[in-house]
Write a protein that binds this DNA or RNA. Structure first.
Length: 801
RNA sequence: GCGGGUAUGGCGGAAUUGGCAGACGCGCCAGACUUAGGAUCUGGUACUUCGGUGUGCAGGUUCGACCCCUGUUACCCGCACCA
């Protein structure tokens, strides 16, 4: 019997679309479930076999939830602003809007061919003015609250993209997107004060269910540390402030180091007798890219400031000050106190420059190596701190510093503010104008959206300005505040802007007077389950949590966190175990897979391929196995007979329901499919399947293979309504227990025999029976019994000596 | 260096969380049906000198360890001079 998948899949996809089968309703009286997958960037290459993995997984969860009676929101949209589209537009002289439209249409067709139960009525597109209206609006709120500010700063500049990158977009000194060289460049940039939310971004992780990996990556990225700021007097009058996490070691501070760019150098040029050498070092350090600085991390360099020195506030001793690029201007105060005895970097530097190393925590040999692992150590050579523990000393010295007005407790973060402007065309215009009288002025909210104007050329300019800067008619405008002459901001927002709040828009995609209606936000939020890639942990996921918290503070949303539960899928590799790429020639095209095997088979294989959370290589022969499974399911129609669930299959059927039901919740799609395969094998052995059994199997398999199961459901007339409108099967725990079980008889932990018993047989009977088994009797013959164990339904272990 | 993770047949991977290692699938072998098989069906398939031995390696805890503990090796991912 032929399995006409193309025909079936087309039929049901059309029918679902016509019936709006998977549209979420705004009936707020029903229990809701909001399932979210990361919306794709509609690239010109189209769908990749990696895309359907998370989509299928969440489709399975969504379909199951609907059958369980939830009002399910499972939306899809397009994160369509971005560089590849712009680059394509530049190369082919086509408007990015047209490129986007074409790519979206292609993507949508590909997604629809896989039968995902997205609510297409709620489709959104970040490049739609009705959408970016509210991206701009949120930016204005950030600006009004002082969380968006412009700053002249050293930024990451990708030479090949001619664009500024956020710290998160620089990977190993190279551009995350194009792999090109990234250099430092001074530019005036819009910044978002994500650092104002640093504490909450860490602390509120306790409110959500994220994988440890994601949680620890975010904590590590934000990098909170507790310590103290300490003011050191200098011989030139000015105080030099340092940050340290080890104020307890202050007595051991034998020198200081400042970053090459530190203002102390500029302020005291006169007093520095070796100024030339210092400035030369500064120039050299500035030329090094971040990458080189990291590469050379092991070899410490630096120059001593001759003529300027610091004074240790507790010992009163004069100590030298060095300039070195192992101290970063962008962290802490740009200056440190160096305690070589208890810090590896300081130790290395001190050895190189022959500086004194004073032990202040007992326990190590500080002349041999830095003793850093000293949390349990005791203070020494430290005046009034002597004999205190490290923890006590921290408290005592901090209290002393505060009393003496020489410093105070301080918390620092590695997280930097978010560089928010891009010198690009294809992004959201920043809705601000610059007026010489009034400074930066926001557009009136009723004037949003600020439409992206048409330009002749999308080429970025070499001087680092956005293509929009060439549009003088557009740039020159009037100040919304004073009516005088003003110019528009010509930079646009980064791609991460639109995706930072898209999950809100799905709740109410056509709302005209707000990002979304607050009643609907209250109903749908938070997102119950959000699946996405690990690569977004410190980008999208962190950014959107930040925006959500800001909107929470504004009162727009009523949950502290946007996503209750986050899961991550593993990548699908090429058949050769390598990342799929055009250059390796190992790319699998999903269109071909669907054409050859059908969407249901593709979906099954994407789920059966391996542990959902781990990477897995594609396999041509593996997909054939799933195709065989689909065909065998289809052919069940040849052996179907009337009747309910038969007694002899009842236990396996209920066990299968239990397994599939639980496995879906735990992302164990591979074993859920394996369980259904096992049940199919059992039914095949029986030579027949009753309609009652078939109906349950179809319901269980439906989320995985929706077209196939709907068709069988209809052909076999298993119910009046189409399958998707029926309820998820429920297992009876009592029917999941076998009538008899086979247990193992061990002697001293070695398996000797097996025995079939009733699961609730009393222990003494089982033990007695076990001892009579010939091999067991042989093994214990003549030995002294030590212990007799019976684990009900599992095993007997007889320990003898 | 720091953080997270992984290691099981020829391959992808299971193992109810301390209780029968290798479910399920692929591949392979044999058979059936066939003019034919890269189709379908049936059976077999960790290794073995048939005593046993086996979850990267070495120890430990336990009646019992893929699972817990200590040490170690290899690989993957993220961060990385953050004071």
């Amino acid at each position: 019997m032929d399995y006409p998948f193309s025909e079936i899949e087309k039929k049901w996809q059309e029918r679902w679309a016509k019936e709006h089968a998977f549209a979420a309703t705004n009936d707020t009286s029903k229990p809701k479930f909001y399932a979210l997958v990361e919306f794709p960037y509609p690239s010109g290459q189209g769908l990749h076999v990696g895309h359907p993995r998370p989509y299928t997984a969440m489709d399975i969860v969504s379909r199951k939830r609907r059958m369980e009676g939830y009002n399910v929101l499972f939306p899809m949209g397009w994160d369509a602003f971005g560089l590849p589209t712009e680059n394509y537009a530049i190369k082919n002289h086509i408007h990015p809007e047209i490129v986007t439209e074409k790519n979206v249409a292609h993507f949508k067709k590909q997604l629809q061919m896989l039968g995902f139960s997205f609510d297409w009525d709620r489709e959104i597109n970040t490049t739609d003015p009705a959408y970016y209206h509210w991206t701009q609006w949120i930016f204005l709120q950030l600006f009004k609250k002082g969380l968006a500010y412009k700053k002249e700063m050293s930024v990451n500049w990708c030479k090949s993209c001619k664009v500024v990158l956020a710290n998160e977009e620089v990977v190993g000194g190279c551009c995350e997107r194009c792999g090109g060289e990234v250099v430092r460049k001074e530019k005036s940039q819009w910044m978002l004060k994500i650092t104002a939310y640093a504490d909450r971004l860490i602390d509120d992780l306790s409110l959500v269910d994220y994988p440890d990996k994601v949680r620890s990556s975010q904590i590590n990225w934000i990098g909170r540390s507790h310590g103290a700021e300490v003011d050191f007097e200098t011989n030139v009058g000015e105080k030099l402030r340092v940050y340290t996490t080890r104020p307890d070691t202050l007595f051991g501070a034998t020198y200081m180091v400042i970053a090459p760019e530190h203002p102390l150098v500029d302020a005291h040029k006169e007093e520095i007798s070796n100024l030339d050498a210092v400035l030369e070092y500064r120039t050299l350090a500035g030329k090094k890219s971040d990458f080189e600085r990291t590469e050379l991390a092991k070899d410490k360099t630096g120059v001593k400031l001759e003529g300027v020195c610091g004074i240790n506030p507790v010992t009163g001793k004069e100590i030298p000050i060095f300039v070195s690029d192992y101290v970063l201007m962008t962290y802490g105060t740009g200056a440190i106190m160096a305690v070589p005895a208890h810090d590896e970097r300081d130790w290395e530097f001190a050895k190189k420059f022959d500086l004194p190393i004073i032990e202040v925590v007992k326990g190590g040999n500080v002349q041999e190596e830095a003793f850093t692992d000293c949390a349990t150590g005791v203070m020494t050579n430290s005046g009034f701190l002597n004999d205190l523990s490290v923890e006590e000393a921290k408290k005592a010295i901090t209290a002393w510093l505060e009393k003496e007005n020489k410093g105070q407790a301080k918390t620092n973060f590695k997280l930097r503010d978010w560089v928010f402007s891009r010198q690009r065309y294809w992004g959201e215009p920043i809705p601000l104008v610059y007026c010489e009288k009034c400074g930066w002025v926001p557009l009136a909210e009723e004037d949003l959206p600020l439409m992206l104007p048409a330009v002749e050329s999308y080429e970025p300019t070499d001087n680092g300005e956005s293509p929009l800067s060439k549009l003088t008619d557009w740039v020159n405008t009037t100040c919304p505040h004073c009516g005088g002459k003003a110019t528009r901001e010509t930079d646009t927002m980064p791609q991460w802007a639109g995706s930072s709040w898209y999950y809100l828009r799905y709740c109410d995609p056509t709302c005209l007077n707000a990002p979304a209606d607050s009643k609907l936000l209250d109903y749908w939020l938070p997102v119950d389950w959000y699946n996405g890639g690990m690569e977004h942990t410190t980008l999208h996921l962190l950014y959107s949590r930040f925006w959500h918290k800001f909107l929470y503070d504004l009162g727009l949303v009523s949950t502290k966190e946007p996503y209750t539960k986050r899961t991550s899928h593993g990548m699908i590799l090429g058949e050769d175990g390598q990342k799929m790429s055009k250059s390796r020639g190992n790319v699998v095209n999903p269109d071909e897979v669907v054409a050859n095997y059908g969407a249901d088979t593709m979906r099954l294989f994407e789920m059966f391929i391996g542990d959902f959370e781990k990477t897995a290589p594609w396999s041509q022969s593996g997909i054939k196995g799933c195709r065989r499974f689909a065909e065998r399911i289809w052919n069940l129609q040849e052996i179907v007979c009337d009747g309910d669930v038969r007694k002899e299959l009842e236990v396996s059927l209920h066990k299968t329901i239990k397994k599939v039901t639980e496995d879906i919740e735990n992302l164990k799609f591979n074993t859920a499919i394996a369980a259904m395969m096992s049940f199919l094998n059992e039914v095949t052995d029986q030579g027949s399947i009753t309609k009652g059994e078939l109906a349950v199997l179809m319901l269980l398999l439906n989320p995985f293979a929706p077209h196939l199961t709907e068709e069988i459901w209809e052909r076999q007339q298993l119910a009046d309504k189409p399958l998707y409108q029926n309820a998820w099967p429920v297992f009876d725990p009592e029917k999941c227990v076998d009538k008899t079980v086979e247990i193992v008889i061990q002697v001293c932990g070695k398996i000797k025999e097996r025995m079939v018993i009733a699961p609730d047989a009393p222990a003494d009977e089982v033990l007695a029976a076990a001892k009579k088994l010939p091999k067991v009797a042989d093994a214990i013959e003549g030995k002294t019994p030590v212990k007799e164990l019976y684990v009900p339904g599992k095993l007997v272990n007889l320990v003898v000596r």
